[in-house]
Amino acid sequence: MDIDILKAHDDVELTFFHYGLQPLTKFIAMLSVLIMAGIWLDVRYLVPLFIMGLTLAILGKAPKAWFVVMITALLLTWYPTLRTTIAQVNPEYYNVLDRTWAATPIATIHINFLNLGEMGLTYGTLYWLAGRIFGYMTVVTWAIFFVSTTPMSEIANSMYAMKIPYQIVFVLQMTYKFIPFMSSVINQISDAQKLRGWSLRTINPKKLVERALPIANPMIRRTATIVEQVTIATQIRGFGTGNPTPLKALSMKMIDWVLIAIFTIFFIVSMVGTIAFNWGAL
């Protein structure tokens, strides 16, 4: 999947969201939405944010596979989600919703063990569950929009332009660049060992450790070699000689300033509404 993420920017048809907006603008928009999606529980507040994120991700030509991953991850977490959901039966948890309506039972049982009390499904718990699902999907769709429309090179450029120390940006860049490289090295090592009959399948912990060695040893050595070579190559290219010449300027357009203003106002108003008027609460 790492390799797909890297390739995404090179293979897809570029949209306005790829080249028309500064990463900083997209980041501020995403951040303001993510914070609110993390705080709000009411599905009525979350659905518009989700629809906006989904629309932007689709317009930004985000790979379909990423949405499949999003849904799969959601389905895989069904058990902890359900466990938390059935624990939301108590009507006193609801301060905004009508408590009588929230307490309307669908299927509930009383558990005496450890005084757990009433558990199960009510209108309130289902409403809470819907909010939780849309909160998750809002976060993911906005993240997909940002990642799929913002090449790392643009993020790095913005960071350079914002005078973030070049050593930090360089390390980030290198990490991003070498993740797929290292993942291909690990795949290669694992393939080479599989061809010698290697398999990790065993329930014996001692054997498990022994069988990890054929992967761990070559991987550690390859990593050390690559780190050494990269160190040498950076020295050859004069890295660390002094302060490098800044080549990137943050060229904000009118649309960037307008969007930053809109999302900043959205964030401030939402926070005030949340604190003062219980916006987004249940």
């Binding site: 290219r237 490098p244 800044p246 080549l247």
Partner: peptide, 30 residues
């Protein structure tokens, strides 16, 4: 010095930026 394996000598995320990486480190004017 150009090493045998190009993958470890390329640091930037675009071709243009990678060529600029060295002279930029040396403080050559923009």
């Amino acid at each position: 010095i150009v090493l045998q394996n190009p993958e470890v000598q390329i640091f930037s995320l675009t071709v243009h930026d990678d060529v600029a990486f060295g002279p930029s480190n040396l403080g050559v004017p923009a």
